[in-house]
Design a protein around this nucleic acid. Structure first.
Lengths: 109, 109
DNA sequence: TGACAATGTCTAAGTAATTTAGGTATATTT
DNA sequence: AAATATACCTAAATTACTTAGACATTGTCA
């Protein structure tokens, strides 16, 4: 059974993958997440595509269309802004992990 | 500036604190989170109280009213079910951390 | 003493990320 | 031939949360 992906983490994941890989198309992101988490997470397309469109809308990614076996792939790539945002979200995620650690493993009572 | 608390984490936090402390009242939870995360997280009461009521509704916590200086405190305590749920959410959080790690620090490309 | 902050509870409207449940079309596998 | 995989999409419903209040008592400080 697929585990919970906390709300707000999806964009962080997308941007992190794009930063690492340079360029990915939507369906590829779904497969990549599934593979890397060994099936723990299944990103739904109903969440992914609107998230990608929003990222495009705010200028964090750009799109290139490429044909492959009669199907169109939309490749996404980080803009400069997107690269900055990726750093922000990465920092936020680390802060989250730290705070979570402080809460669940307290040093002082 | 207060950082993001990913959606879905609030209940995990509440149950974890109750497990550790045995008994807490709502306002105390707000203070405790603020203290432990050194101000990083500010749980809003508009989120906390409904969450507590929901936990009570599904039988994960019980309530005891206590008076203190003319003000009523509602103390929450885990039920057996709540204790089980706490373990589930804790496991889910750990799974999240692992998956997040796998995504952001991949071993294989 | 008068005002403002802190303590302590609550709710209701609005927001936004997600789930659910579809749709369309081609390629590949069984 | 039918089902699955690939590849994109959207719209309605859900839901956890934010915002913005309400109410009452106690503590603090000018």
């Amino acid at each position: 059974m697929a585990k919970k992906l906390y709300r707000g983490a999806l964009t962080t994941i997308i941007l992190a993958l794009l930063k690492e890989r340079g360029e990915l198309y939507g369906y590829e992101i779904v497969q990549e997440v599934k593979k890397r988490t060994e099936g723990e997470w299944a990103i739904t397309e109903g969440a992914l595509y609107p998230a990608l469109h929003k990222l495009e809308g705010v200028g964090h990614v750009t799109v290139t269309y490429r044909e492959y076996k009669n199907r169109t792939r939309k490749y996404y790539r980080l803009t400069e802004q997107g690269r900055a945002e990726e750093a922000n979200l990465q920092a936020e995620m680390e802060s989250f992990l730290q705070s979570m650690h402080a809460l669940l493993n307290p040093k002082w009572t």
